[in-house]
Simulated scan of single mutants.
Amino acid sequence: MKKKLIQHTSEHFEKLFHSQPQSIFLSPGRINIIGEHVDYNDGFVMPAAINKYICFAISKNENSECALIAKDLNEAYKFDMKDELKPVEKMWVNYILGVLSQLKDKYGLVQGFNIVFSSTIPMGAGLSSSAALECGIGYAMNTLFDLGLTKENIALIGQKSEHTFVGVNCGIMDQFASVFGKKNKVIKLDCNTLEHEYYKADFKKYSLLLLDSNVKHTHLTSGYNVRRQEVEAGLKIIQEHFPQVKTFRNCTENMVLELKEKLGDTVFRRCHFVVKEIQRVLDAAAALSQSDFKKLGELMSETHQGLSKEYEVSCEEIDFLVDAVQHEKTVLGSRMMGGGFGGCSINLVEKGTEETLIKTISERYADAFGIELKAYKVKISKGTTLYKDNHAAIQ
Results as ranks from 00 to 15, higher is better:
Val245Ala: 06
Ile50Pro: 01
Leu282Tyr: 06
Leu103Thr: 05
Phe180Ala: 01
Asp174Pro: 11
Leu73Ser: 13
Ala392Ile: 09
Lys160Arg: 14
Lys379Ile: 05
Asn169Ala: 11
Leu321Trp: 00
Ala49Lys: 07
Ser101Ile: 00
Tyr365His: 04
Lys329Pro: 11
Phe369Glu: 03
Ala201Asn: 12
Gly124His: 12
Leu348Ile: 10
Ser23Asp: 09
Ser207Lys: 15
Phe165Cys: 03
Leu209Ile: 13
Asn32Ile: 04
Thr330Tyr: 09
Pro47Lys: 13
Glu372Gln: 14
Leu147Ser: 03
Asp319Ile: 01
Ser345Arg: 00
Ser119Phe: 04
Glu89Cys: 07
Asp212Asn: 15
Leu373Tyr: 09
Cys191Tyr: 10
Asn61Pro: 10
Asp190Gln: 10
Val331His: 02
Leu100Val: 04
Lys52Phe: 04
Lys205Trp: 07
Ile50Asn: 02
Ile121Trp: 01
Ala375His: 15
His12Val: 09
Gln111Lys: 15
Asp323His: 11
Ala48Asp: 08
Phe56Met: 05
Ala368Arg: 15
Lys388Trp: 09
Gly124Arg: 13
Leu321Val: 00
Ile50Gly: 02
His163Glu: 04
Gly108Leu: 03
Ile157Pro: 00
Asn32Lys: 12
Ser59Ala: 10
Gly148Ala: 05
Gly43Arg: 07
Phe203His: 09
His8Ala: 14
Asp367Arg: 15
Val378Gln: 00
Gly138Trp: 03
His18Met: 12
Leu109Thr: 03
Tyr77Ala: 08
Lys216Ile: 06
Asn114Met: 11
Ser362Ile: 05
His391Pro: 08
Lys382Thr: 12
Met46Leu: 14
Ala140Tyr: 02
Lys295Phe: 04
Ile371Gly: 02
Gln305Leu: 10
Ser27His: 08
Gln20Glu: 13
Asp146His: 13
Tyr40Phe: 12
Gln305Asn: 15
Gly29Thr: 10
Lys294Trp: 07
Leu100Lys: 00
Phe165Trp: 05
Ser222Asn: 14
Ala324Asp: 11
Gly342Thr: 06
Glu84Arg: 14
Gly167Tyr: 07
Lys71Ala: 14
Leu97Glu: 07
Lys86His: 13
Gly342Lys: 02
Phe369Val: 08
Ile238Phe: 06
Val256Asn: 03
Lys379Pro: 00
Ile50Met: 05
Glu354Asp: 13
Gln279Met: 10
Pro122Asp: 03
Thr164Glu: 13
Glu232Lys: 15
Ile346Arg: 01
Asp283Ile: 02
Asp174Glu: 06
Glu232Met: 13
Val275Gly: 01
Leu357Val: 05
Val99Met: 00
Gly297Glu: 01
Phe248Gln: 09
Ser59Pro: 07
Ser161Asp: 07
Asn347Thr: 12
Arg227Ser: 01
Arg270Ala: 04
Lys388Asn: 13
Ser308Thr: 07
Glu328Leu: 11
Ser119Pro: 10
